[in-house]
Design a protein around this nucleic acid. Sequence first.
DNA 1: CCCGGAACCTGAAGGC
DNA 2: TGCCTTCAGGTTCCGG
Length: 271
Amino acid sequence: MPELPEVETIVRALQPVLTGKTIRRFEFLHPRVTRHSSPEQIRQEYIGSIISDLRRRGKYILIQFRQNPPDLAIHLKMSGQLLLSEEELVNKHLRAVIHLNDGLRLNFVDIRTFGYIFIANQNAPQGFLSLGIEPLSSSFTARRLEQLLSDKKTEVKTLLLHQDLVAGIGNIYASEICFLAGIHPERKGNILSKEEFKRLHRSIRKILQEAIFQMGTTFSNYRRPNGEAGMYSNQLQVYGRESEPCYKCQTKIIKIVQHGRSTFYCPLCQQ
DNA sequence: CCCGGAACCTGAAGGC
DNA sequence: TGCCTTCAGGTTCCGG
């Protein structure tokens, strides 16, 4: 479910609450909620540790510790949620609970059980170890983007989903980015012009920043840690708008499937 | 390296 | 009401 802006929103909400707290206890309530690290390894590594900060890398949430062991990492995949509570959370899909020293609980709820928790060390999943550039960092330039994509024969919208190139873009924002850049999603990386890479770069940053400002997009079940929806849903230009008129030119929005994922675009605005 | 397709799950929504 | 199919914001693996 969550892409970079949603994960960033979650991290910003949790960071001030969790920083300074000590981990007392872990409950792991589903066999797949930990992967690449065992429940015992996680307990051994972190019980009694003091949280020093929270941050995001791609779509991963990283909990950092004062004693500076490896970070504790969480990926929410399609349906994961992190919800704070003072009391026991009653939820059929509760998969793990991190208990903190003052009685606060960080609850990991996940309907589809794709999400998981792991230690961010050398045993971490390959996808985490090979993450690409952060699109909101200062080192992410149009030139850098061009270097990354200009030798690829893959369609540009699909390239935007490659986490080992640019980290954090998901299926909703990939369509929105192509629309803002005025680039047809089926154009291939190796035929884009310098000018198009500039527009693509600007669009990536603009869309992600604006979506963070709106605290993410709620399409079905994404929720901020306080339970509220994200507001970028109201700003979507193409995603989920098949057959509806383009806001710019009134042409009907088209839906196609690329690499098994839905893509939405305006056939007139995106050539 | 690249690509397509399937797999991992549960639930919501739509067609009949 | 119910049964069936399709689809969902993400990786990851396997075969070609």
